[in-house]
């Protein structure tokens, strides 16, 4: 059902977000509610699913149906919901720890499965809620109490992995650029299949260096492509601060879905009769 004249405020709940002042997630929340208004679906037809972490608080801050589950499993909850209720618009929210570390396996398989939904990962390259530990996207030499002197581990490249595992829509945005974020989220939701949007969202508390991101990000100078190999080459050689839609693919979304039809279970009994 399309409803005219929805505003971002129609998608906000009355709960005050608990984030540090200056957190990028405030902007992501704004972009999401603005995008939902543009999509012109009423809030009751939208489901926002998340795991655990700062970014995963978002469902309760929207006026949509929300599910705030356990750490790392938002994609599984969202996939089950979308297959069971293909009529809903389903969005999943994660951070870099929730999405790429504890939820890493689902990150791969959700793309393979290509259920029609949108996955927004707020990447701040740190575990914020537990007060500053390195995540899979943290630079190898970033010093912390848990890993003094740095992890020594190579940072994870979520967009390349997304392309390699079959995501149907891949984009990177910066939280501070609300207009671009909003538009990309709208495009991601409208594109059939699994859409992945990484939003660079600074953690000003544990990664004050990320305050500089606003000066470092730049719109991609190259147009989007439908060739995953090309997209992967491009993203592997950029400086990590390129934003925009990188890839839009033609894969058909996952097909199984549950209908409202009330099937005749008694017909199944014949199978056991001898």
């Amino acid at each position: 059902m399309n409803v005219p004249n929805l505003k971002a405020s129609n998608f906000k709940s009355d709960i005050t977000p608990i984030w540090c002042p200056g957190c990028g997630d405030f902007h992501v929340l704004m972009s999401i509610t603005k995008a939902l208004a543009k999509l012109r679906r009423p809030p009751e037809d939208i489901a926002v699913v998340s795991g655990i972490g700062c970014s995963s608080r978002i469902p309760a801050y929207t006026n949509c149906y929300g599910f705030h589950g356990v750490h790392g499993r938002s994609l599984a909850v969202a996939a089950g919901l979308k297959v069971a209720r293909p009529d809903l618009t389903v969005m999943a929210m994660s951070g870099d720890g929730d999405g790429f570390s504890i939820g890493g396996n689902h990150f791969l398989h959700a793309r393979r499965r290509n259920v029609d939904m949108t996955y927004i990962v707020m990447d701040n390259r740190v575990y914020g809620m537990t007060k500053g530990q390195p995540s899979p996207t943290t630079e190898s030499d970033w010093d912390s109490a848990l890993s003094p002197g740095g992890t020594g581990l190579r940072a994870f490249h979520p967009l390349v992995i997304a392309l390699a595992s079959g995501a149907n829509f891949v984009a990177r945005e910066f939280s501070g650029n609300i207009k671009a974020c909003t538009q990309t989220i709208v495009e991601a939701v409208n594109h059939p299949g699994f859409s992945f949007v990484e939003i660079l969202s600074p953690c000003v508390t544990f990664r004050p260096d990320e305050k500089e991101w606003k000066n470092q990000v730049h719109e991609a100078s190259v147009a989007e492509t439908d060739d995953p190999a090309r997209a992967a080459r491009r993203i592997m050689t950029d400086d990590g601060m390129n934003t925009g839609i990188l890839y839009r693919g033609p894969r058909k979304p996952y097909s199984a879905s549950v209908s409202d039809e009330v099937g005749d279970v008694s017909a199944l009994e014949q199978f056991f009769e001898i």
Binding site: A47, G80, L81, A84
Partner: peptide
């Protein structure tokens, strides 16, 4: 978690 999501959806 998939069945939790589907059940949340009413199935």
């Amino acid at each position: 978690n998939m069945i939790i999501g589907a059940s949340f959806g009413g199935r």
